[in-house]
């Protein structure tokens, strides 16, 4: 038997896989032999810069194209089943649980892929105003959104928060599970192979306690989607630039039900309604 080849767990920023600029690593509990990049405030800043560039590409893409790219993510997850299951098992799941979570991840991704070119019809409107005016409301992405993913489920937790934001045309900087960052970081490899434009999604690993408040404070983040119960400290910091803030506080049972994780109402808080008026005249 030959010596196994290990993987270095790195960040995913601007379509590349850098180590933390800080040079720091951490060893997740139960995997003391694995050194995972420990993202810093500077890494976050770099990721936000990348996300600002990715926003233009992603939101400028046709909804049909975005739908196809999200579907491609599902294809890549399916075709890398063995590898992804292994990442999930590294996070402590049994083989059966890992298979189940991957199935859920694929199902979730396909559902949101098909929503891309419907969200505008469902959330926008033409409005019956008085007078000779054509008036309609369209939706646009809020911008760069920060995501703090739950510790568990490591893959579905990240995807469930990420996908509705991508449907809305936003770009994302996500902090993946601190407890089991493997599947979350491996998701970056899937995204890179799925034609997701560089910077549209950026994944960081590190300590939630250290980084969550930096997400909340940063003025170039437009919205914040955080797993867990409402956290006053984060919202207070986020108010500095009037960020849109939502929390996703689900039981582990809810996290394992795909139906609970797919909703147009998760897209809505991170899109902006823009209403246009124009006179009607001969």
């Amino acid at each position: 038997m030959s010596v196994s080849v290990r993987k270095t767990y790195k960040l995913y920023v601007g379509g590349k896989f850098p180590r933390s600029e800080s040079g720091r690593v951490f060893q997740p509990a139960g995997n003391e032999a694995v050194n995972v990049a420990r993202g810093s405030r500077k890494d976050l800043r770099d990721a936000i810069g990348a996300a600002r560039k990715g926003l233009a590409t992603w939101s400028g893409s046709a909804a049909y194209l975005r739908g196809q790219i999200l579907y491609r993510i599902a294809e890549m997850l399916a075709s890398r089943r063995d590898g992804m299951v292994q990442e999930l098992r590294l996070g402590g799941l049994t083989p059966a649980a890992a298979q189940k979570e991957l199935d859920n991840a694929i199902a979730l991704t396909i559902w949101y892929a098909g929503l891309c070119d419907k969200a505008l019809s469902l959330l926008g409107s033409q409005n019956a105003v008085q007078g000779p005016f054509f008036n309609f409301s369209t939706i646009e992405p809020t911008g760069v959104i920060g995501v703090i993913a739950p510790d568990k489920p490591a893959l579905v937790g990240t995807l469930a928060l990420l996908l509705p934001l991508l449907v809305g045309g936003n770009s994302v900087v996500a902090l993946v599970s601190s407890h089991a960052p493997f599947a979350g970081l491996a998701l970056g490899e899937v995204l890179a192979a799925s034609d997701v434009p560089a910077g549209a999604v950026n994944l960081l690993s590190g300590h939630r306690d250290e980084l969550a408040k930096e997400f909340a404070k940063h003025r170039d983040i437009d919205g914040l989607l955080v797993s867990g119960p409402p956290d006053a400290e984060l919202t207070e910091a986020a108010a500095d630039n009037v960020k849109r803030v939502r929390f996703c506080n689900l039981s582990s049972a809810a996290w394992s039900k795909v139906e609970r994780l797919r909703s147009l109402s998760w897209v809505e808080p991170f899109v902006e309604t823009k209403t246009l008026w124009h006179p009607v005249a001969p």
Partner: peptide
């Protein structure tokens, strides 16, 4: 911006999101 008036300005209506 949330409201864009084109060839008009400062119009409001209960049916129009603001």
């Amino acid at each position: 911006a949330g409201i864009v008036w084109n060839n008009t300005f400062n119009l409001f209506d209960a049916a129009s999101p603001f």
